[in-house]
């Protein structure tokens, strides 16, 4: 147990992981991408990454552990409000607030998941549905804490070792780094024995239990970690938009996030980025009215679910395999 993990990674290190390269390459591209894009374009890119983090967490819950959470937006709200309140009212540093947001949402996830998963797994969907509504009520009604419908404004952006991150580009680069760190963490988790257990309980919970895998504990952990990613996303979201009110954390937003997971491809590492691209960036670029785009997006997801439940990533994988078979046959 005392040997460092690096020494024992003989088996996985045989080939350099394509996903790892993809993540780092993506981060480099995104670091430079907004040059010449203007404030708004940069903001949209940052928003995309922040939402991707939230979707990533939900992807762990849904795509890897096979559980439906209808409260990811509520968890983002918890993180965003915790960060906003801590930094504006109590002068806590953003970094501490970020960590606390993750911790808080992780703990709430455990608390919610424990009773729900004790019974039947689809109860988690209903419990999170109820929780979502409850959080919404608290955010709207507890004016003394959350500012009610007026929200909290003047949320400061953090600085990075003395470098102020007030500008759109500086903050975007900060978001890129945080997103990279969180995706690497998730990548590491998915390849760990825990990740293997998550996959096992999604594919065949009965068999998993017969191999000593405590399905309840692992499901709970996947959900709590996924929720914590919602908290992290919220903690980044608050300083990005600098003003928060309850509306982006409603139940419909949670449903929307879930659809992004499915659209991007549940269970794929890069699925959340694709999903958030389709759900957040595309409507901004196409200048689509919110409600109409939502209809189109939901309809596309519906169609995807019928044709290819693995989402866009699944489609790409299918296409890629077909292409490889063709070129392989030609050789």
């Amino acid at each position: 147990m005392s040997a460092p993990a690096a020494q024992n990674s003989a088996a996985p290190a045989r080939r350099i992981d394509a996903a790892l390269i993809g993540l780092i390459l993506g981060a480099i591209i995104l670091w430079f991408a907004p040059v010449g894009m203007g404030r708004y374009g940069t903001y949209v890119l940052s928003l995309w990454l922040v939402m991707s983090i939230g979707v990533m967490g939900l992807n762990l819950t849904l795509g890897y552990a096979g559980q439906t959470s209808l409260a990811q937006a509520a968890f983002m709200g918890l993180g965003a409000y915790a960060t906003a309140i801590l930094t504006t009212k109590y002068g806590v540093s953003w970094y501490a607030a970020f960590a606390l947001s993750g911790l808080l949402t992780f703990a709430v996830g455990l608390l919610l998941g424990f009773p729900a998963l004790r019974v039947r797994t689809h109860y988690l969907a209903f419990v999170t549905l109820a929780f979502s509504t409850l959080i919404w009520l608290v955010l709207r009604n507890e004016q003394w804490l959350t500012g009610g419908v007026f929200g909290i404004s003047n949320i400061n952006r953090p600085d990075f070792f003395g470098i102020k991150l007030f500008g759109a580009l500086e903050f975007h680069r900060f978001v890129v780094v945080v997103t990279l760190i969180l995706s690497l963490k998730l990548w590491w988790l998915i390849r760990s024995p825990w990740g293997r257990a998550f996959t096992a309980l999604r594919e065949n919970p009965v068999r998993a239990a017969s191999l000593g895998i405590d399905t309840r504990a692992y499901t709970l952990l996947a959900f709590a970690i996924g929720s914590a990613y919602g908290g992290f996303a919220g903690a980044l979201y608050a300083p990005l938009v600098e003003f928060i009110d309850p509306s982006p954390f409603s139940l419909s937003q949670s449903l929307f996030l879930l659809l992004m997971v499915v659209a991007g491809g549940a269970g794929y590492l890069f699925g959340p980025f694709v999903g958030a691209l389709l759900g957040v960036v595309l409507p901004e670029w196409l200048r689509f009215a919110g409600s109409l785009y939502l209809i189109i997006f939901a309809a596309i997801v519906l169609a995807l679910l019928v044709i290819c439940p693995q989402g866009v990533s699944g489609l790409i994988e299918r296409g890629w395999n077909a292409l490889r078979r063709k070129t392989g046959g030609a050789r």
Partner: peptide, 13 residues
């Protein structure tokens, strides 16, 4: 599960 999610998409539509 996919069916449940499909009904969520339907609810949004």
């Amino acid at each position: 599960l996919p069916l449940a999610i499909a009904t969520m998409a339907l609810s949004i539509v």
